[in-house]
Amino acid sequence: ASTLVLAEHEAGFIKAASVSAVVAANSVSKDNSISVLLAGSGPSLQEAAAHAASCHPSVSQVLVADSEKFTYPLAEPWAKLVHLVQQRGGYSHIIAPSGSFGKNILPRAAALLGVSPVTDVIEILESNLFIRPIYAGNALCTVRNTGVDPCMMTIRSISFPVPPTSANSKSNVSPISQVDLSTFSEDSVGKSRYVKQTSQNTERPDLGNARVVVTGGRGLKSAENFKMLEKLAEKLGAAVGATRAAVDQGFVPNDLQVGQTGKIVAPELYMAFGVSGAIQHLAGMRDSKVIVAVNKDADAPIFQVADYGLVGDLFEVIPELLEKLPEKK
């Protein structure tokens, strides 16, 4: 087997989710040769390529497409690039992380290559046998890909955690080669242009990758009260999340939403305050290692998934936690 991983990079590093895609590629088969494809322009691309070359011991080569067409990760040139690279490399698998980058690009590239992609793979059983959640994670579907190569998929990065050591292993640095773009087709490239990006506040850890997440639900009652939760998050070095109900009430912006329709998270510690535990919310956090729930309703469904449940008034519990929790460095 040979696998092409579509990687996303930022500020000279390939993103953690893309390294997860390499981990996923590694479970496709034992003798899998893994190529990481990066596209962009300028020095930060070359730095990211160097990072990619040593990000995981199983990477066998890094392919770099350096052109102004790829300065921003637009779907149109990227899909063409994947098509071009696939035609030359004949990979058996193409994998991308299922964030906004992968979900945007991979299906388009799949249409150009005439294959049906598999979305949101959480487990790779064999080289063509995958598990993906359906019905908001209420059922798991095992699918077999019986189509022609390449087998294309997006993977849920939380299901393919990156072993902490591999990130630093400098022992195995794989070769980096530039993609020859002389035959790059210009069709439908240039029809889309990047204008700008506005980023959210980055002081706290990113919700998707945080080790600890504290989430508030409708029980928080107001945007003002969410500040209390933010204090707790600061103390724990945690990211703040919210339920759909809290977002709908306008307590917090929608990018904090955890759940089927928001972010899917799997931190080591997930603390839910005033969260009832709607099935759509559970879908976004059920893979967390330790779940703590605080709710004054003892019958709230969140307690069914919680490792530690505390029935109580969060307006008393949160201040007490703030007072008693050990200080993070």
């Binding site: 294959v115 049906s116 598999v118 046998l129 959640p133 359906i134 994670g137 209420n138 059922a139 798991l140 579907c141 095992t142 699918v143 077999r144 890909n145 019986t146 189509g147 022609v148 059920r286 779940i291 703590v292 307690f303 069914q304 998934v305 919680a306 490792d307 530690y308 449940g309 505390l310 029935v311 109580g312 519990v317 007490e320 936690l321 008693k324 929790l325």
Partner: peptide, 26 residues
């Protein structure tokens, strides 16, 4: 190209415990 092999229920989380105070939780 895609064949559904099986559809299963997701694994259940093991039952947790209820704690009675913040101190116990910590």
């Amino acid at each position: 190209d895609l064949e559904v092999v099986q559809v299963t229920e997701p694994p259940k989380r093991k039952a947790g415990v209820m704690v009675s105070s913040v101190d116990e939780l910590i």
